[in-house]
Structures are given as structure tokens and as C-alpha cells.
Amino acid sequence: MPLKPTWRRRAALALPLLFALLLAGCGDTSITDITHTPNMLDPKGPIALKESDLFWIILIIATAVFVIVVSVLIYSIIRYRARPDSPEPTQTHGNTRIEIAWTIAPSVVLAVVLVATITTMFQIQQPQSPNTITVNAVGHQWWWEFQYPDQHFVTADEMWVPTNTVVHINLVSNNVIHSFWVPQLTGKTDVIPGHDNQMWLQADSQGWFRGECAEFCGTQHAHMDFLVHAVSSSDYQTWVSQQQQLAAQPTDSVAQAGAKFFTTSACIGCHAINGVTTTDASRLIGPNLTHFGSRQWIAGGVVDNTPTNLAAWIRDPQTVKDGADMPAFPQLTDDQINELVAYLESLK
């Protein structure tokens, strides 16, 4: 039951309080200069649009019911409040006809809601567009791995998609339950070990969209965010071919020292860098860092990807993200950390 956007805007205007508060939600986030929001009432894809349309319908019905019932209640308590001279009330015990009527009335309203629910539910099951790509979203404690099986590369916490394209997403977890959610594009689907859940989404316009893990998954559930970046298909192609490349060879000497240090340190026990590390990447528990320098965030969006933040992260991940599965390395010297930072940031 799609509504015209103007109609929705009018509905929003009719509710000044809500509208003002929603406006408050349209600001930028402080952790990146990228404008993005998890506001589900500002939909940017076909699924989220249908879902938010339903919200406005429900809101109108619910408000109407609330206003009617509470008005009658308030009228009754004012009109029939006890006064010294008020007569003894008639001892009515009920009225079967009225009661049948007000059993039927909500049934009808609810039936309408139910029909809208079920039709929309089936509508959003099946994608429309013929262009498709497939991504595997793997939930870890507490970050997201994105595998592009047809393009043969993996990345973390950032998923690029072409606009107006159906993105089929396979949801994988080998640990606890997570939930994949991009409010502006689609509602949630849980990521459950042993269940190969699938979902799809589509972005109708370019932009950055905030994604969040929505199922409580342990200590750092609060920092299991990700970004979906919807771009034109040519930008998408450029990004894919960049991600497919092996890690760049560092050119300046500090970064070169970092590269050397990385391959001989504990880092390779948990992180892969394609073309540099040799361990079987599928057995590693940390994010693949091949193109780490091209990403916006560190570790599930806990901080921006800046050299300073990265240095703090490598020195002691636990102060940045208490409980994360990466240990601190107190033995690292400032120089070593600077070298590692220079190297990792050079991995565009």
C-alpha cells in the first residue's frame, strides 16, 4: 500500500512534535564526516519505503483510537465526577448489543491492518530489479565481514553496492546470533549459526547508509556497526577492482618498516593481508586488512579510521573497545606503532 511522498510529508507535519524530533535526527554523526543516519523514516530503498509507509498508516490509526478512547474517558470523569449533589448512578450491568458492537469494531480495524501487513510482507519477499549481486555478510564478535563470492575478495565493516541493484545477502555466523540491519534500506534479518538466512536489499539513491547489529551479542554489541555505500555502477566496478588487488607495496621507508614488522609479529596470527601473509585466511579471527587504509572506520565503527585512532587501537584495543578479541601489545615501542600505522594506512 505505497503512499505518495507528499502525503507522508503531510502526515509528518500534522504531528509537529514527532516531526521536530525527527528533524533532530537528520544531523551528521560525529564519528565520520560521512553523512549517514539510521533513521528508518527516511527510507532510501524499496523495502524500507514500504515499511515506513506502513508505519504512517499504523500511526494514524493508533492515534485516532487513542484520541477517541481517551476523549470518552476524560469526558466521563469530568461529566460524572462526584459532586455533593450528584445522584446515585444507575446500576447498569452491561449491554450485550453495545458490547457486541465494540467487539466487531476493533475486529474490522484490525482486519484492515492485518491485510496491509500480510500483503506488504509478501511484496517485500521478492525483489523486482533484474540486476543482482551477491554478498555474504558474516557476523563476528563484534564486527562484520563482507565476502563478495563472485568477485573473490573480502572486506570488513564496509559494504559497497551499486544503486538500483538487488543485493542478495547470505547471512552467516559461526558464533552467536547477530542481526543485520540497515534502517534506511531494510529491516532486520537475524544471523543465526546453523541457519543460512538470506535477505535482499536495494538502494535507490547514492549515499552512505548506517548498518547496525540489532541482536544482543555480547560485551561489544554496541560497537558492531557497519556502512553500506551505494554508488553508481561504474564507481562500484572501480571499487571492486581495487579490492581485488593484492596489498599495495609501501613506498615510504616508515611504512616499509611497518610492513616488515607486521609480517614478523603476532598480527599475522589473526589478520590476513593478501599477497603478504601466507596463513589460511579462513582460520583467522581478525578482519582482513588488505585494503584497510581505504575504510572509514576501525573495528565495527568504534572510532574513525585516522592515524591517531589507529595508533591508540594497536597500542591497547581494550581501552578503545573494551572486551574486543584483540589483545594489547604492551611491548610495542612508539616507533613500531608508528611504522605499523603508516603501513596499514597505506593499504588503500
Binding site: 551528521d28 543516519t37 533513521n39 547489529c213 540489532a214 544482543f216 554489541h221 554496541a222
Partner: peptide, 19 residues
């Protein structure tokens, strides 16, 4: 409204910038 603005439950903290 927090829910509609995308705030998940059971988060021990939250960032600024989303209202």
C-alpha cells in the same frame, strides 16, 4: 522515537549525531 531513529536496545553506549 529513539527506536524509529534507529537506536538498538541493549547498547551500553551510543554515539552522538543521530538525534
Amino acid at each position: 522515537i529513539l527506536g524509529l531513529l534507529g537506536m538498538p536496545r541493549r547498547q551500553y553506549t551510543y554515539p552522538t549525531g543521530f538525534g
